[in-house]
């Protein structure tokens, strides 16, 4: 799941300065699960903004709407009529959701209310840990299910660096060395030979926005071209 943190109220207030009628759009998927931008968090933030602006004698009217997923056109469509009534949009979704809203309503200013932080797992209520950097070259099959890109401070693909220290990383004594963990896990499974398989460097594909089209599907514009033909 994508994990996000709510931005400090001062930063949100600064972005909304001068606007009198703003629609706060929550997202019902990842950010709702990690308690950062779902329906409840929209309500709390709206109440805070309403009170803060009243105290400054500059009231603001906050609208609330939470759609199932801000990264899906079908769900965003439910916003079309509502958006017309507002001067600006505050989105509590991850960066992808914010950009998709901005793309759909190019005439409206769109502001992010959360900082998208990582792809992670739920360790307890309200406690999340990063596990994946979405590097596009998954090696988990060879590393005993421990990601060296995420868990190693240097993101090393092939074995530990000189900073590994009795199972811990040189950057912090609380941070386990990813490659030590990988070694222990592989040893436990009797698969230590996996560690010898060298991985090529990640490609620079990471540096541009990536697109995935699953087998059997095509880009919408290609579909329309085909229909025209």
């Amino acid at each position: 799941m994508i994990v996000a943190k709510r931005k400090p109220i001062e930063e949100i207030k600064k972005m909304l300065k001068g606007y009198k009628k703003v629609l706060n759009v929550g997202c019902g998927t990842c950010v709702a699960v990690c308690l950062a931008g779902g329906e409840k968090e929209v309500e709390v933030l709206n109440a805070q903004l309403d009170m803060a602006r009243r105290l400054e004698e500059d009231p603001i009217e906050m609208g609330a709407f939470t759609c199932e997923r801000q990264c899906d056109r079908e769900y965003l469509g439910t916003l079309d009529e509502k958006v017309k009534q507002y001067e600006a949009i505050l989105s509590m979704a991850c960066g992808a959701g914010v950009q998709f809203i901005a793309e759909r309503y190019p005439d409206k200013p769109v502001f992010p209310a959360v900082d998208t932080t990582f792809i992670g797992v739920n360790q307890g209520v309200g406690w999340y840990e990063e596990r994946c950097r979405s590097c596009s070259s998954c090696v988990l099959g060879l590393t005993g299910g421990i990601c060296p890109v995420t868990m190693c401070a240097k993101g090393l693909f092939n074995g530990p660096c000189g900073g590994t220290n009795k199972g811990m990383c040189e950057v912090s004594k609380d941070q386990p060395c990813a490659w030590h963990m990988i070694y222990e896990r592989l040893k436990q499974q009797g698969r230590l030979d996996c560690i010898k398989e060298l991985q090529p460097m990640t490609e620079w594909q990471n540096q541009v926005p990536r697109t995935v089209i699953q087998p059997g599907y095509r880009k919408p514009e290609k579909e329309t071209e085909q229909q025209k033909a």
């Binding site: 709390v44 109440a47 009170m51």
Partner: peptide, 10 residues
């Protein structure tokens, strides 16, 4: 709920 308390003050 958090909102019950917040609404009271609001």
């Amino acid at each position: 709920d958090v909102m019950h308390l917040l609404r009271a003050i609001q």
